[in-house]
Amino acid sequence: MSKDNIVIREITKADDKQLAKVIRHVLLEFGVPKVGTAYADAALDCMMETYNNAKAIYFVIDADGAIIGGAGIAPLEGAEGAVCELQKMYFLPEARGTGLGRKMMQTCLEAAKNLGYKQCYLETLPYMTAATKLYKKTGFRALKGPLGNTGHYSCNVWMIIDL
Rank of each mutant, 00 (worst) to 15 (best):
107 T>P: 01
147 L>C: 08
59 F>L: 09
131 A>R: 07
108 C>T: 03
61 I>E: 01
35 V>K: 14
112 A>F: 00
104 M>C: 08
139 G>C: 06
143 L>A: 04
49 E>I: 03
3 K>F: 15
35 V>R: 13
21 K>E: 15
36 G>L: 00
19 L>E: 03
68 I>F: 04
91 F>Q: 03
39 Y>H: 15
95 A>G: 13
56 A>M: 04
32 V>C: 15
146 P>F: 01
75 P>Q: 12
56 A>L: 04
84 C>T: 03
154 S>D: 10
144 K>T: 14
52 N>P: 00
64 D>Y: 03
68 I>E: 00
156 N>E: 07
70 G>W: 05
8 I>D: 08
77 E>M: 13
26 V>R: 01
55 K>H: 13
103 K>T: 10
90 Y>K: 07
63 A>W: 06
8 I>F: 10
47 M>R: 04
101 G>L: 01
13 K>A: 11
65 G>Q: 06
88 K>E: 06
129 T>A: 11
140 F>S: 01
83 V>L: 12
18 Q>C: 07
6 I>P: 02
68 I>T: 02
143 L>C: 06
8 I>N: 07
1 M>E: 11
135 Y>K: 01
136 K>D: 08
54 A>W: 02
135 Y>D: 00
160 I>V: 14
111 A>S: 10
32 V>A: 10
48 M>D: 11
78 G>Y: 06
1 M>T: 10
